[in-house]
């Protein structure tokens, strides 16, 4: 049995308590964004805020992880991240290579230290 019931009531629950509280921010963003010029100073600031939010999200996941990532040590997670950044730089700024290297480092570290 689903925690939100079945049929029409479940659809309403999903739309009202999950989709709508998310979409509202996007709709406000469109209304505001259409009044802003692409090379204005305000946009520089908004873009920096968006960038900082994503960086903060990454750091939060690394320091306070959830589920099975929480069972790895914080040092291993940061070592894997440092390795990912290193491979990214060495391979001439290749995102794919860095990400794969970081995940492999984490998996290898788990095998070695447990």
């Amino acid at each position: 049995m689903s925690p939100i019931g079945d049929g029409f009531a479940a659809v309403v629950a999903i739309l009202a308590a999950c989709a709508l509280p998310t979409q509202v921010w996007r709709w406000i963003g469109v209304a505001v964004g259409q009044r802003i010029d692409a090379d204005s100073e305000v946009l520089h600031w908004v873009r920096a805020v968006a960038t900082a939010i994503i960086a903060a999200f990454v750091a939060k996941v690394l320091v306070f992880p959830t589920a099975s990532l929480a069972e790895t040590s914080i040092w291993l997670r940061f070592a894997a991240t440092a390795f990912a950044v290193l491979v990214y730089i060495v391979t001439g700024r290749t995102v794919v290579a860095g990400v794969i290297a970081g995940v492999v480092a984490l998996l290898a570290g788990q095998l070695i230290f447990t």
Binding site: V24, R26, G29
Partner: peptide
């Protein structure tokens, strides 16, 4: 559902600067 909606709305505020930055 109300508790879920509040939690969702708070976490989704981050979409606002992203949308404002992308739309132009």
């Amino acid at each position: 559902l109300a508790a879920a909606a509040i939690g969702v709305a708070l976490s989704a505020v981050r979409l606002l600067p992203m949308t404002i930055a992308l739309v132009p």
